[in-house]
């Protein structure tokens, strides 16, 4: 049946990239994330949806230890990437974040040239030995982010001079420059117009060939468009996790149903 399917959505990959077990997050007294168990697949786009304050961004930020930077945050439980405990004392969070890249809601290029924005990561992680090698990485990353053609003649102009959509793709190029294995995206299109959104969504689909992509989005239509797997969070719980097609046509939990049909917020 596989070759007859019209929508290339079915998840073929079965390799698990990230395993989370009994993950709890506390912000001071507040219990923000409760007992989250999830297996995130390799070479798959996984969308996290849910109302504001449901814990989806909190969980995303556990995956590259961004919550370490929040002083009152406490993370419990077990999160493994390729079987390695990322909260192990021997793990260097900076190295981890090179492996688990992140793109944020608002484009946040460094106040540097387009070239330097992309070259920064490979430089500090010592990934290149020569200028020409670095040039190659910059070009390759900008191509992956579908930005190369638009900026190849002005690589030394400031990144902040680009349009919003271009800046966001620059940030994606910057994130892929360190050859991450996982790409986390926290509402990457919420500040973009529909055309730039479509470009980023097309890009996400491209990136799926090489990476495990996890995207937090408030737009359910975006989750439906870009992801193969969807997880619905509500009040700190992971309520339902399954194939996107199934979640949006026949969700099993009444809370998921109410949320995606616009009955609870």
């Amino acid at each position: 049946m596989d070759d007859l399917r019209t929508i290339e959505r079915s998840v073929d990959v079965k390799d698990i990239k990230i395993t989370a077990r009994k993950v709890q997050v506390f912000y001071g007294e507040k219990h923000a994330l409760k007992d989250v168990d999830v297996d995130i697949l390799d070479k798959t786009v996984t969308a996290f949806i849910g109302p504001s304050g449901c814990g989806k961004s909190t969980f995303l930020r556990c995956l590259n230890r961004m919550n370490d930077t929040v002083s009152i945050a406490r993370v419990e439980g077990d999160i493994r990437i390729d079987g390695e405990d990322i909260y192990d004392k021997r793990v260097d969070p900076v190295q981890l974040r090179a492996k688990v890249g992140m793109v944020f809601q608002k484009p946040n290029p460094f106040p540097k040239s387009i070239y330097d924005n992309v070259a920064y990561g490979p430089k500090i992680h010592g990934l290149t030995r020569s200028k020409s090698e670095l040039d190659g990485i910059v070009e390759e990353s900008l191509k992956r982010a579908a930005l190369w053609n638009e900026v190849k003649d002005r690589l030394h102009e400031p990144g902040t001079g680009l349009s919003g959509g271009q800046q966001q793709r620059l940030c994606i190029a910057r994130a892929v420059a360190t050859s991450p294995e996982v790409l986390l995206m926290d509402e990457p299109c919420s500040a973009l117009d529909p055309i730039a959104t479509a470009q980023v969504e097309e890009l996400i689909d491209e990136l799926r060939r090489n990476y495990s992509v996890v995207i937090v989005t408030h737009s359910m239509q975006q989750a439906a468009r870009v992801s193969q797997k969807t997880a619905f969070f509500h009040l700190g719980n992971l309520v339902e996790y399954g194939e996107t097609g199934a979640i949006f046509t026949n969700p099993q939990d009444p809370r998921t149903e109410s949320y995606i049909t616009g009955r609870i917020g």
Binding site: M220, A224, F248, T249, N250, P251, T256, E257, I260, T261
Partner: peptide, 9 residues
Amino acid sequence: RAPNAIDLR
């Protein structure tokens, strides 16, 4: 309205 789930059905 891009209906989902029960609304879509």
